[in-house]
Nucleic acid binder design. Structure first.
Length: 482
RNA sequence: CGGGGUGUAGCGCAGUUUGGUAGCGCAUCUGGUUUGGGACCAGAGGGCCGCGGGUUCAAAUCCUGCCACCCCGACCA
């Protein structure tokens, strides 16, 4: 058998080393995850991409419900007057909202914005509903899409419309709201690690980077292959900013009227972009097994030979009975070689090849997408072996991603060293920081690097801010961001 | 909003410099042989060359206006 030739396999995909942005575009197009629509920045998510989103939804939705949340649905359109009620919020979002100005041919008396996020419409409804502390907490979530008129768009990473979920909760006390904020952040971290196999840096946003209208924003941040960071989920403690602006009150235990404490949290289809850029390689996608729409593909060899199809069908049924998402590709149109390449590009975690020789020997050939290793396995007990292997692939992928992230994480002593390292080998920079927004702004203006996160897991790297020389008592992660 | 690029068959592209029958690869269809890393042979179909105006005997090609998308920056999940 001919040795695999790298060039032969990547003919359709630009290599990451050559041009990372082009690699990303090639991968999503060739693997049929999305297509561009007639409207700039709006994309069609095709079945293979949407199945990834469905698996993310299923994981999160289950965890939301396990933690007491219920789904509901709020309207797409928000009157301008509502959007304007919270000052910081409207300043943050006004530049990028889409407006509806006409109904049919009639000009509307008040224009309506297409939701960029739903805090305002949710709060206006909550203010009608809430009366007593006995009704708290409000634990609601919605699955929907939002629109933000972006100037520069990339499929999944930044689109003008994106799918997400947004949770909106009300609590009697500040302590409860803070607990909720962190609980939901932790569900995002758990989803990322257990489903996507992506290690996250977890912590709080600086004031400059926090959500418009939030008291505090918490975030999970992932590092991509090219050394840029991706904000992958956020949870906001909104305190009483919105509940006061929208006059949401309840009669408390003491009998006095009180404002509830408020949280919101969201994760979007952007996560799919993260999966591609954390795990992908020059052959295309590498799907983490629990997220993969297809976990195993079976490719029969010499399938017209007597008994081959019948044999692979028994394997298919056994795997399916174990709850494995399996596809048997017995189409006659394409050769086995074509199928190998196709499913490799699509990132299917395990490929099983079965031909007359294997049937004879009571084995199958099993190829791992993540390592590209190919070995033979006993036909007897195969489905159990595959279940174990899928879990092994998940943890190997997680560990590999973590190693890659750690290798791209660095410390430094001087601002010049920081600039040099950010240019020559971009990634996460760990550093002490003074806490001054002006210092942060200056670094961003000069280098394009921002504070991604003030991590919960702090380390003591000294007591001076290397950017301005002022005293510093907190460590931050900095990076260029998507 | 600045800089760059691209619009030609379902997809990817050549042809534009120097105007003269609209091409190539893949895909599709027909028949046959194949199948352990993108099979082969023979045949077939498929086009408002982004849109509008102009120059010319003649425009994918030259001039002009517009539109769209992609990439890189500034702004943002």
């Amino acid at each position: 058998m001919a040795k695999n030739n790298e060039k032969e396999f990547v003919k359709d995909i630009t290599t990451m080393e050559e041009d990372f942005a082009q690699w990303y575009t090639d991968v999503i197009k060739k693997t049929d995850l999305v297509d561009y629509s007639p409207v700039k920045g709006f994309m069609v998510i095709k079945p293979y991409g949407y199945a990834m989103w469905e698996n993310i939804q299923a994981f999160l939705d289950r965890r939301f419900k396990e933690t007491g949340h219920q789904n509901m649905y709020f309207p797409l359109l928000i009157p301008e007057s509502l959007l304007n009620k919270e000052k910081e919020h409207v300043e943050g979002f006004a530049p990028e909202v889409a407006w509806v100005t006409h109904g049919g041919n009639e000009k509307l008396a008040e224009r309506l914005c297409v939701r960029p996020t739903s805090e305002t419409i949710v709060c206006s409804m909550y203010s009608k509903w809430l009366t007593s502390y006995r009704e708290l907490p409000y634990l609601y979530n919605q699955w929907c899409s939002v629109v933000r008129w972006e100037k520069a768009t990339r499929p999944f990473l930044r689109t003008s419309e994106f799918l997400w979920q947004e949770g909106h909760t009300l609590h009697e006390t500040a302590e409860e709201a803070q607990i909720e904020t962190l609980k939901m952040l932790d569900i995002y971290r758990e989803m990322s690690e257990d489903l996507l196999a992506i290690p996250m840096v977890v912590g709080r946003k600086s004031d400059r980077e926090k959500f418009a209208g939030a008291e505090a924003t918490y975030t999970i941040e992932a590092l991509m292959h090219d050394g840029k960071a991706l904000q992958s989920g956020t949870s906001h403690n909104l305190a009483q900013h919105f509940t006061k602006a929208f006059d949401i009150t309840f009669q408390g235990r003491s009998g006095d009227l009180e404002y509830p404490h408020h949280t919101s949290w969201g994760a979007s289809t952007r996560l799919i972009g993260g999966v591609i850029m954390v795990h992908g390689d020059n052959r295309g996608l590498v799907m983490p097994p629990r997220l993969a729409p297809m976990q195993v593909v079976i490719v029969p060899i010499a399938q017209k030979k007597e008994g081959v199809i019948e044999h692979v069908k028994t394997i298919e049924q056994e795997l399916r009975a174990k709850g494995i998402r399996v596809k048997l590709d017995d189409s006659a149109e394409n050769s086995p070689g074509w199928k190998f390449n196709e499913y490799e590009m699509k990132g299917v975690p395990i490929r099983i090849e079965v031909g007359p020789r294997d049937i004879e020997g009571g084995v199958v050939m099993v190829a791992r997408r993540d390592t590209l290793e190919k070995s033979s396995m006993e036909r007897e007990g195969l489905s159990d072996s595959i279940v174990v292997l899928l879990d092994q692939i998940h943890s190997d992928m997680f560990e590999r991603a973590k190693k890659d992230r750690d290798a791209k994480t660095f410390t430094f002593d001087t601002y010049d060293e920081f600039k040099e390292k950010m240019t020559s080998r971009p990634g996460f920079a760990k550093t002490m920081w003074c806490g001054d927004s002006q210092c942060e702004e200056k670094v961003k203006a000069e280098t394009g690097v921002t504070i991604r996160c003030i991590p919960f897991e702090q380390e003591n790297l000294g007591d001076v801010c290397p950017f301005c020389g002022k005293p510093a008592n907190q460590m931050v992660y900095m990076a260029k961001a998507y």
